[in-house]
């Protein structure tokens, strides 16, 4: 029984085959990386998994059930969270509220309970407090406490990346899709981020799918790697295997 499995998915935009028969399997508790040159379809793959794009054929199996074709919010409810390559935070909310959105699926307050929130004994208020406490734990893990009441729009890039990661973690995901978590960071920040990702795996037991351009990072932390080019898979395997695979080298460095 596989934990998470992608079976031959393809998608094309007009004449461009963005993904062509991609297939891989992810085991529980591993870091699975996806690499490839720019425009090779890595983010498209993530968009397919999180339901933003609907692949034309194939299957995406999560715990043996097909999640392909479901709406993004339903996929999120199953426990698949993601971050974005270009930060997609809610700039006019503070850090706490941004992370609280991650708790959205666990909360039950609808408009009526929200409308009649009278005092701290009411259902809505209790629920808010309860989930804020949960979010606080994540803030502690990611070291975000000092930004709790700051609007995220004005925070530094590295912090925003961490908040986005925190928002995904607040969902208590089973699978976390990280789209270039280290992009645009200094080497110190990168190191911090690597430790964080490893912490997440160990402490929270989250399976991680990772897209990253920094080969050092990828080779360091991945259990297995999928290399793709022009939407087609090249090779899946351990870092050393992928690193020395001639097709991968060709895709990155070009042919002589």
């Amino acid at each position: 029984m596989s934990f998470f499995k992608v079976e031959n998915i393809s998608i094309s935009f007009g004449g461009v085959k963005a993904l062509n028969e991609i297939a891989f399997e992810v085991n529980k508790g591993e870091i699975f990386s996806i690499i490839g040159p720019n425009g090779s379809g890595k983010t498209t793959l993530f968009n397919c998994i999180s339901g933003i794009y609907k692949p034309t054929n194939g299957k995406i199996l999560f715990n043996e059930s097909n999640i392909m074709g479901k709406n993004p919010h339903n996929i999120a409810k199953l426990g698949i969270a993601r971050t974005f390559q270009n930060i997609e935070l809610f700039p006019y909310m503070n850090t706490m509220e941004n992370l609280m959105i991650g708790r959205h699926i666990y909360m039950k307050t609808g408009i009526f309970r929200a409308a009649f929130m009278l005092g701290r004994k009411s259902f809505a208020a209790k629920e808010e407090s309860f989930h804020r406490e949960k979010v606080e734990e994540i803030m502690e893990l990611l070291d975000l406490q000092s930004f709790r009441n700051r609007f995220v729009g004005g925070l530094p890039y590295g912090v925003q990346k961490r908040i986005e990661l925190g928002r995904a973690l607040a969902l208590e995901p089973k699978i976390l899709l990280l789209d270039e978590p280290c992009a645009g960071m200094t080497s110190d920040e990168k190191e911090d981020m690597i430790f964080l990702v490893q912490d997440i795996l160990e402490i929270l037991g989250v399976t991680i799918l990772l897209i990253e351009h920094d080969m050092k990072v990828v080779m360091d932390i991945s259990n297995r790697i999928l290399a793709i080019n022009f939407g087609s898979p090249i090779v899946i395997g351990k870092p050393q295997v992928v690193q020395n695979h001639p097709e991968v080298l060709k895709a990155y460095l070009g042919e002589e």
Binding site: N71, P72, A76, H104, A114, R167
Partner: peptide, 22 residues
């Protein structure tokens, strides 16, 4: 509360709101 946060999330970044379960 939760409902209002979902509204603001949709306004600020619709795709992100969708993928986080709104």
């Amino acid at each position: 509360t939760r409902v209002g946060r979902a509204f603001i999330a949709i306004r600020d970044a619709e795709i992100a709101a969708e993928t986080i379960g709104v």
